[in-house]
Design a protein around this nucleic acid. Structure first.
Lengths: 349, 349
DNA sequence: CTGAAAGCGCTTACAG
DNA sequence: CTGAAAGCGCTTACAG
């Protein structure tokens, strides 16, 4: 990009508008930012200035405006991905809610790269963000420390950081309810009362351990023992999940608790490969939401994190600053999927 | 948010750093923005200044910096959604590529709301964006006109706007290839040689009409007539698609060309409801990509738009400005899905 | 009812 | 090798 297109005139400023209107830059500024009634500028002048601004295609220079104002109204967010139902929904909802409150949302996507995350935090501070929400970041505390030093508030979303208030899903309760649902469906459809297989996630990951706790709790309620070999917690990646499933011997009928749609891709690939002994009577539930995954015939239910609910809490914290509680839990939404009403679709003959 | 936390000290400026270092603000500025070698500042001083900046948690004020510089390096993008595989991938890739070029990407999500789109364009101009990429917007020409008046360049991505250069998928070729694939699979799996059903999209939508053209072309090649009643172009919404499918009589065996994953949701809901006469031998292909949709057993292939390829072209245009061609087409990527290797999974008994 | 003036935090010729 | 000074486009007390 060249610096200028050469023949394109400089973008008009309030000085240009003032000259055209035969008034002062102060008056133009007041009219254009809505403080003109307070300054008792005549409605006639206000109207004329607005008209001229419109004609000249005027747009305020936010860099200048923010530099001068005491508040930037910029709120920053760091997400690991957009290309993901959950984080996509978070980013979208955050933007909508911020705008509704007259704030300027600036979102950055850092693909779980710790260095990029830190650079993004620095950039958002440089943009004069008033607060920074981080979600899915690998090192939230480093970001919080940096921001604190710069006087920028941070909130961790769906992350249990220790250096900032956090808003998290009730992973325990959500997992317990999903586990109950799967157990129930195994019983009603197959008459089974066996412990489930837990698949996906990382042991060090707080969300995974909370979900595992809920999973075990539901088994305990039913008086079911839960052998450790039925827990595959070897990462979220589909390939790892698939490989781990291949290595273990599984019963004829099986219920699976899948810890994310990422892991679910691995589970389904494994199911689809018919070249080995897989359980004949299979059902699963998944802690995550995806509309197409909801259509898989073995799926009995999905647990959706309450994005709207969590962001309501986040904006509540922003507004009630600095009296934010350290941590708030938001319940998840269980979406049961009814058993198919009819026999299977046609298969290749 | 209160204006200040009261006890938090003002964020340090180059004046503060200069005072601590016992030098001038000019020197600090030069060191911090990398122009110090040109100014022949001693390496010793440069090192000391950097050190102090680090200690003080200094972060440049981009508002001030951008205001003073001739270039903002901000590149804006308007997308309709983040919560969508395609647009999520576009946003994510755009951000990565812009950063790699030392630019500041600012993305706004406008949920197909024409007023919001226009407000977003105005806001990006106010942020001094040097160019604006719009994709999936309802009124790209209005945005282009406004930006042109403000001296901001626009590029339409996957949109055939008339007022700005555009980068679009080869919808014709992509649809022709996908249609060929479905026809081929209907023949090899079921021995069928019937015309396909086209489902989804809007007739007024350029992408839909191009895809329909490719669909018809593939039929023509095969010597197949293509009766108009086998084209359901009543919008993308899943509900509309499902309702339209219910209203028509369909043959025992059927191949379907589905015009987006949005419409595909409707098709699959219709397939899953077993309470009416649906085709027994069903296959479909879909012009869009989704990993779970790819797992549906009737799916023979999906056409992915080449997001990386399109954005390469977009950044090429940005850099080669103002010699941009009016319109560039980028081929799509066909992803065939092999027929299942084994018999169907267990169904409820 | 309105304008002149200071200043937000930087960058960059310009003058040593 | 380095600093003083002007100015980017606004906003906002302040003084009429």
């Amino acid at each position: 990009m060249g610096a200028e297109t050469g023949d394109s005139p400089r973008r008009p400023t309030i000085y240009d508008l003032a000259q055209i209107a035969g008034t002062s830059p102060s008056a133009v500024s007041a009219v254009l930012n809505g403080t003109w009634k307070k300054r008792r500028i005549s409605e006639k002048l206000a109207r004329r200035i607005s008209q001229i601004a419109e004609e000249q295609g005027y747009a305020v220079n936010l860099q200048a405006s923010m530099l001068r104002r005491e508040r930037s109204k910029v709120v920053g967010m760091i997400v690991p991905k957009y290309d993901n139902r959950y984080f996509g929904a978070i980013a979208e909802r955050f933007e909508t809610m911020a705008r509704a409150r007259g704030l300027f949302p600036v979102i950055t996507c850092t693909r779980r790269d710790p260095e990029l995350e830190f650079e993004a935090a620095r950039e958002l501070v440089s943009f004069q963000a008033e607060c920074l929400i981080s979600t899915g970041t690998t090192d939230p505390d480093r970001i919080s420390d940096f921001c604190a030093a710069a006087g920028v508030r941070t909130i961790n979303l769906d992350l249990p950081g220790t250096r900032a208030p956090s808003v998290v899903s009730d992973n325990f309760g959500g997992a317990r309810d999903l586990t109950r649902l799967i157990l129930e469906r195994m019983r009603s459809e197959f008459g089974a009362a066996d412990p489930l297989l837990f698949v996906g996630g990382r042991a060090a990951d707080n969300n995974t351990s909370e979900r595992l706790r809920g999973f075990l709790e539901a088994h305990r309620e039913m008086g079911l023992a839960c052998p450790p070999e039925l827990r595959i917690v070897a990462g979220y990646a589909p390939g790892k999940t698939e490989a781990a499933l291949e290595r273990i011997a599984l019963p004829e009928r099986l219920g699976i608790f899948v810890n994310s749609t990422i892991s679910l891709e691995g589970v389904v690939h494994w199911m689809k490969r018919g070249d080995r002994a897989a359980p004949r009577l299979l059902r699963f539930g998944c802690f995550d939401w995806d509309p197409f995954a909801a259509l898989l015939p073995e799926n009995v239910g999905m647990t959706e994190q309450d994005v709207d609910g969590m962001l309501d809490v986040v904006f509540g914290m922003i507004e009630a600053w600095p009296e934010s509680p350290r941590r708030i839990e938001v319940p998840c939404i269980l979406r049961p999927i009814p058993a198919p009403a009819a026999p299977a679709q046609a298969q290749p003959g």
